[in-house]
Design a protein around this nucleic acid. Sequence first.
DNA 1: CTCCTTTGTTGAACGTGTTCAAGTTGAACA
DNA 2: TGTTCAACTTGAACACGTTCAACAAAGGAG
Lengths: 223, 223
Amino acid sequence: MTGRTRGEQTKAAIIDAALALFTERGFDATTMRAIAESAGVSLGNAYYYFRSKDELVQGFYDRTAVEHGERLPEVLDGLDGLADRLTAHLDLWFELMAPQHPFAVGFFRNAADPASPLSPFSAASAPARTAAIELMERVVEDAAPPVPATVRAQLPEVLWLYHMGVVLFWVHDRSVEQAATRLLVRRTAPMIERVVALADLPALQATIVDLTTLLADLKAMAG
Amino acid sequence: MTGRTRGEQTKAAIIDAALALFTERGFDATTMRAIAESAGVSLGNAYYYFRSKDELVQGFYDRTAVEHGERLPEVLDGLDGLADRLTAHLDLWFELMAPQHPFAVGFFRNAADPASPLSPFSAASAPARTAAIELMERVVEDAAPPVPATVRAQLPEVLWLYHMGVVLFWVHDRSVEQAATRLLVRRTAPMIERVVALADLPALQATIVDLTTLLADLKAMAG
DNA sequence: CTCCTTTGTTGAACGTGTTCAAGTTGAACA
DNA sequence: TGTTCAACTTGAACACGTTCAACAAAGGAG
């Protein structure tokens, strides 16, 4: 975690201090002054590396995303069915994020603001978004039986949207160890696999085209 | 808007001032001090009537919900198809909320916090939630052709969830006059009608049961 | 009338996130 | 070596949401 340059070390120290305090006291109860003091750094210095308190959480979220990408192959190994692979992917996410669930709200509250750079749809988070969709691509590409060509191109992005929806649910989930979210995934992933498997049915072509063009139109308007 | 007692008048003055300033400058750029000054009242007095800045916005939302319920029959009048009725219902919501869209983000940001009483899923907003589902019941009950009995009971609540999803999209929608959200509804409402019409198909029974029990299980865990 | 309670009102003060002008450090270069 | 300059660091200061002890007005009860 210790970077080469002085700046990288300071930055890591701030993230570490913030993560520890967030976990210990929660997001709102942790002040920027406490983070700076705990990191052995001045208040202003914390703002040199992170433009806001929220961006601090983004830094740690990025860390988790990297670890997610690194460990994904190992949890996908040996799994063929799309539902199994999707479930394993999300379970890994839950596992990595579980310690941060108590203060995740403080993060996602601002992520829900479309004007915020933390919004998953914002231009600022485009790299993180692309990386996340890339992970879904890995979930999809080696699935067996293979995903019908009809929906193959759109599927990773659609599954990423599904992921975002699950995250929204997870944030609101107050059941023990977020069991409700796990249940949601365990039940809906097979449904997705079932629907995807039917994508070549002639009867569904109209609906698939409808959905595809709708997505394209909406993305065009969102520009 | 002028109430009988002194307190009611002051309260109304504060709401009016806040609404004007929010609309003019947006939520974040409007300070409580500016609201108080504009209402001809001291800062502390604003907090005598509203426990927080957010609670001030909740007032508008409640007002709008009441108006929505009052005007719903008139926009549903003469419409039979479920898609048409659903679209009319949501269009009315858009019409009523349009003036507040610029600062709606400031409101919904906190509504996205499940711990906040403003969250649509919180216990504190249970009355508002029940009222909103009740409106969906009115959308469903007189639809022709009638909704299959298989899904009739669950449909209003499911449509309310759909409504919440649309609201989430609407908040993020930066297209002119939220045209993208209208497009989304115009395209998805017919899909919903189509799926609902197929609810009695034997091939779909398993999936419908799956979804129904999933919803029930999740609600039980959320308890 | 006086007293008491409820309701309404005030502005100073607190703690917070954030900004900024001013300073320090250290490595590359002359 | 001395110079330069970008990277880094500082703490005071600002504006905001919110709290609070104190005060004023209104309206009965005696």
